[in-house]
């Protein structure tokens, strides 16, 4: 329950945070909600020398519509999103997923930016962001850039974030009319992280699926887009039989994780079940 010693600095702005990161280098860690970092530090699994607190940077905490996009500041808490009418109107899976993260205390403090940057493969946001076709906005000493969510998660706790870069926002293109979405999660019963989570966004036009995107988290070392489902369903009617056929093979070429709660085989099975549940909820 006692962390190692460290220095604490509260960043006043995004630029301030970047300057601080450059100054303190590898020894520093950003502190957003801290609900992954602080427990690890208490167990001494991690011991950064400097914590740069970005939780109070107001310019990071917003949810707004910007043209044909929904933009969520990295500092928006899970609770902010769970209760955002704007988020709900865009994709109902956004508040749906937010509400399934941790517990009310965690949702009050934990931020979407922190969660995405941390890239826990069992976290809920990565799959949802992939299904939403989101882009992740990054800012570093050399300027800003954005990366599609689908490419952002590169491995176990690994992302495209480079040294001294800060995740500032997520932008989500507003979906075409006729789009519905859902996020379904099979929880690890102790931690309530996802053993498998499936997010589905489906656009149906004239009784046929025009566009479908499914993001899967928990299964492999990074969240990924289930391309097999997309291929199988576009142009088809959203029937249970078609969905059943489409989810076959989900995760087949992923490096599937295993632990004492769920073996590889079981996780693969759950991926199919939950992809189907998300697709059914978004279409039926």
């Amino acid at each position: 329950m006692v962390t190692n010693k460290f220095d604490y600095i509260r960043a006043e702005s995004v630029d301030d945070a970047i300057t601080l990161m450059v100054k303190h280098g590898m020894d520093a860690k950003l502190l957003a909600g801290g609900h992954s970092l602080i427990p690890a530090m208490k167990l001494r699994l991690n011991a950064p020398g400097v914590l740069i607190d970005i939780r109070k940077i107001q310019e990071l905490r917003y949810i707004k519509k910007d043209g044909n996009k929904l933009v969520i500041g990295a500092g928006a808490t899970h609770h902010d999103i769970a209760t955002s009418e704007l988020a709900h109107q865009t994709y109902s899976m956004l508040p749906e997923a937010a509400d399934l993260i941790g517990d009310q205390q965690v949702r009050n403090i934990g931020t979407i930016g922190g969660s995405l940057a941390h890239a826990d493969p069992a976290a809920d946001w990565p799959g949802v962001m992939i299904a939403a076709g989101a882009s992740v906005h990054l800012k570093g000493p050399d300027g800003e850039r954005s990366v599609p969510a689908e490419d952002f998660f590169t491995g176990f706790y690994m992302t495209e974030l480079q040294e001294n870069e800060l995740l500032t926002a997520i932008s989500i293109p507003l979906p075409p009319e006729g789009t519905r979405s859902a996020y379904k999660k099979f929880m690890q019963p102790a931690s309530r992280f996802a053993i498998v989570g499936a997010a589905a966004a489906v656009t149906v036009k004239g009784g046929k699926i025009e566009r479908v995107k499914v993001g899967i988290n928990g299964l492999a070392d990074a969240a990924f887009a289930a391309g097999n489902i997309e291929k199988a369903l576009v142009g088809k009617e959203p029937t249970e039989a078609n969905i059943d056929a489409a989810v076959e093979g989900t995760g087949a070429d992923a490096m599937v994780m295993a632990d004492h709660f769920a073996s590889e085989e079981y996780r693969l099975h759950l991926a199919k079940v939950y992809a189907k549940r998300a697709l059914m909820a978004a279409t039926q």
Binding site: M1, Y8, G34, H35, I38, P39, K42, L51, H79, Q104, Q105, V106, N108, I109
Partner: peptide, 9 residues
């Protein structure tokens, strides 16, 4: 807001 005070500095 309810928070867990063991996970906040």
């Amino acid at each position: 807001n309810a928070v867990k005070s063991c996970t906040m500095l």
